[in-house]
């Protein structure tokens, strides 16, 4: 259950960016999570609620954008959707494959309400 630590880091990044940009209210945080990043989306959502409870980010919504996995065969260069981390090429049956997409774990953008208006 490392999602709480990840959620706390997302809250920290949000605070850093908001401070830098002079923003007082962040309504939404958009995060990219690859399906092979080792994160359970539901757990990350509830962890984010826990991490931001009673803070200025309490009402901030976490939007999780799931990124599907892509693997590439190093032998025949075929790209395919792997079965989790099972990366056996469906074209030539080679084991020599690499995950090229699906391990993302990043804060993509923030949406803020400009409270100075």
């Amino acid at each position: 259950m490392h999602e709480l630590g990840i959620a706390m880091r997302i809250a920290e990044i949000t605070a850093e960016v908001a401070k830098r940009e002079g923003v007082r209210k962040v309504t939404e945080v958009n995060v990219d999570i690859g399906v092979l990043a080792g994160i359970v989306p539901d757990l990350l959502e509830s962890s984010f609620e826990m991490a931001t409870k009673d803070t200025w980010l309490e009402k901030t919504r976490l939007n999780i954008h799931l990124i599907p996995a892509t693997a590439m065969c190093l032998m025949c260069k075929k790209q395919f959707a792997p079965d989790g981390f099972l990366t056996v090429c469906p074209g030539c049956n080679a084991f020599e494959c690499e995950i090229v997409r699906g391990k993302e774990l990043s804060v993509k953008s923030l949406l803020s309400e400009d409270s100075r208006e």
Binding site: I13, V107, S112
Partner: peptide, 8 residues
């Protein structure tokens, strides 16, 4: 509303 790209 204002969108800020973070990419971190």
């Amino acid at each position: 509303q204002k969108e800020m790209v973070v990419a971190e």
